[in-house]
Design a protein around this nucleic acid. Sequence first.
DNA 1: AATGAATGAGGGTTCATTCAT
DNA 2: GATGAATGAACCCTCATTCAT
Lengths: 231, 231, 231, 231
Amino acid sequence: MTPDKSIPLHRREPHSKRERRKEARPGELLDAALDLFVEKGFAATRAEEVAARAGVSKGTLFLYFPSKEELFKAVVRENISGRFQEWNQEFDTFDGSSADMVRYCMQVWWDRVGATRASGITKLIMSEARNFPDIAAFYQQEVIKPAQELIRKILQRGVDRGEFTINDMDYAHLSIVAPMVYLMMMKHSLGACAPRGHLLDPQRYIASQADILLGGMCSRAAEKRTTRKRK
Amino acid sequence: MTPDKSIPLHRREPHSKRERRKEARPGELLDAALDLFVEKGFAATRAEEVAARAGVSKGTLFLYFPSKEELFKAVVRENISGRFQEWNQEFDTFDGSSADMVRYCMQVWWDRVGATRASGITKLIMSEARNFPDIAAFYQQEVIKPAQELIRKILQRGVDRGEFTINDMDYAHLSIVAPMVYLMMMKHSLGACAPRGHLLDPQRYIASQADILLGGMCSRAAEKRTTRKRK
Amino acid sequence: MTPDKSIPLHRREPHSKRERRKEARPGELLDAALDLFVEKGFAATRAEEVAARAGVSKGTLFLYFPSKEELFKAVVRENISGRFQEWNQEFDTFDGSSADMVRYCMQVWWDRVGATRASGITKLIMSEARNFPDIAAFYQQEVIKPAQELIRKILQRGVDRGEFTINDMDYAHLSIVAPMVYLMMMKHSLGACAPRGHLLDPQRYIASQADILLGGMCSRAAEKRTTRKRK
Amino acid sequence: MTPDKSIPLHRREPHSKRERRKEARPGELLDAALDLFVEKGFAATRAEEVAARAGVSKGTLFLYFPSKEELFKAVVRENISGRFQEWNQEFDTFDGSSADMVRYCMQVWWDRVGATRASGITKLIMSEARNFPDIAAFYQQEVIKPAQELIRKILQRGVDRGEFTINDMDYAHLSIVAPMVYLMMMKHSLGACAPRGHLLDPQRYIASQADILLGGMCSRAAEKRTTRKRK
DNA sequence: AATGAATGAGGGTTCATTCAT
DNA sequence: GATGAATGAACCCTCATTCAT
């Protein structure tokens, strides 16, 4: 009924269309659940709705996930699969300026998470953290900490190379995290009800944020270079 | 716990314990509801729980609010009462540097909203906006727009006085909004489940954010003054 | 608040207006309850509504009646107070034709019960009998049986005087009862929702019914007299 | 219990016990609801009770009817399905005397409605009309009007053939309606609480009523024939 | 006596979960 | 495996009844 609407998560080759559907089921259910949990929250989402959106019956949902709560946990787990390893490597071999690295970091964050349905997880976690403390801890461990380390490494690189001047290294990463989280939150909450024209343009938003915060971090000596790149 | 936050409507002295309680009830219920809605979300909060936390029975809640949904709306309405008028005046007569104004703005935001239970509304709106579009619109109109205008005025003042250099005036205010919203969100979501020691120190966070973003906005000429103040 | 809207049931002279109100309370409550029970049924009538219509507060109702159910019983009891004794005497001394007696009986029934709010009791009993079997039994004993005896006496008189020819004396009284009950039922049920113009004209209805059933009961010999009176 | 009273929508044979039950459910629920609504009234009947009597759980009821009120409406609708068309034809081709027609009409009324559970609808409507004005209007349109027309046609036939003499043709039909309605009402109200032996014998009641009212309507010329039949 | 705020058992309705098919 | 009818615990809300004032 519903065409598989995104890249299926299970990669083994299926032998027939029928079998493919079968193997794709959990992924379709997770996709549907993600959308609905993000839109309405965990409690306000009905299991049957998830099943319907995934094109299966209510009973089938419980064939793959033992309870609504386990479905929720699976949704979170599935959508935060360690992208950071890969990113770490990317940044390890990056050879531009640190300012560019920050810009690239924000852009990649947007492209690979923010612009995809995975960005909903951020809202989901924010909204449901206190109802699912173990999920919150898991997220903290698996997403926030790696992200923080990644960004801190970038900033440290800037400092080490004399590109950045940063007063409080423990909190500086939040200057990048906060705007990105805000952007993703808005996309899934108020932004989703805003009338056309009131919507945030992500590219312009990221540019504006990067512009200002890099202005604030870049050492004055490095200033000209950075400012020039901005154009 | 809850300071009487506005002029009560009934002026005559309550004559009895009973009557005194009666006048306090709506406020107590709203406070309890705010806490629980923020903590668990609208759907996951049971009316009876709200009543219990307010120290009354289930039925009493419905004596004051015709439905759970109306209670929700009242909670939002009650907690966003136009503080902006007052703030506008405050800033109209402010006579320090614009950088100080930005810092003061963030500090006041934290002190008067972020640090109080009212900050929960931000999380509530973010979480429930799509389930209550009319509330979202109301919030957009009554909170976001005034806040945006207030901040934009501050930034414009900085630009006008040659203190700030800002490329994109339409998005610059978000450099202040995003970190503050992030701070409030965290306080009520992940921050609330974080182990001790992992918690954000709001003052330090604000200082760090202000530090960086003012660094990025301040015209280079004005730089020394601003930097000095920072100590 | 509500002016006492009908002849109060308690006849003792009250000394002051205030006291009069006080003594009239139960009667006003019974009147209000009768109206509402008849209109909506026992279960669908709220105690507060009764109190409000009687112009008192909810608590006051329970000052006079220990429960809603007792109120109901009082309403029935109060409105069936033996009118039959008086009627019996009236008919004992009646000296017209038996056909006239039947006509007079139906007319009096309408004037003294049907046209008054007391007629509602008939609908009430019909509707609620099975929920209140003891009330039903009481009504059977206090109203139906006396009425049946009264009517049977009238019919017997007609037979004894050679005016009526009746085959089944055990059921004949129902030829009078059924139309009258039907009339009162309609007034309080479908008749109450009918659009203007669709309403039964009681006088014409009674005339028509009496016309036909007396035609069927009157001995052929007595026919002329009866027919003439009919005009 | 309930004969399938119209062509079921699903024509394929039910393959399993489960499916068979499913098709029977609405009817079983309607039957249970009719009984209970008639016995206790709408408000005093609990949804769970209806479900229990139909042998299902509370939740199942709401699988078939979206609310108690819709169940009520379905009960009324289901039980007044136009029998009048068929009756009309029956009477169009009747070739006995008009007095016999009246007797037959009453008998058929009793056999096909009065003696069945459908007779409860009459009490239900009488009791609940004012709480459900749209149902009352529907009943007026679908039952009362057709019945009135049918009976009026019979009476008119009698008049046209010189068998009946009727003064007020607008009200005469009520001489048949009132006794029948009274009979059905009693069956479901006071009659249902009466001790054995106090019960109305429907056949004898109908005979008595027909006897008297036909006596009152039949033209004197036609009298002998009618009277003879009566034996 | 009168009030009306408060209570809490009860009823309508929803929905996660089960299980016969 | 897949289905969807059935369940019943849980929730929102009502309202008869109580009781402090």
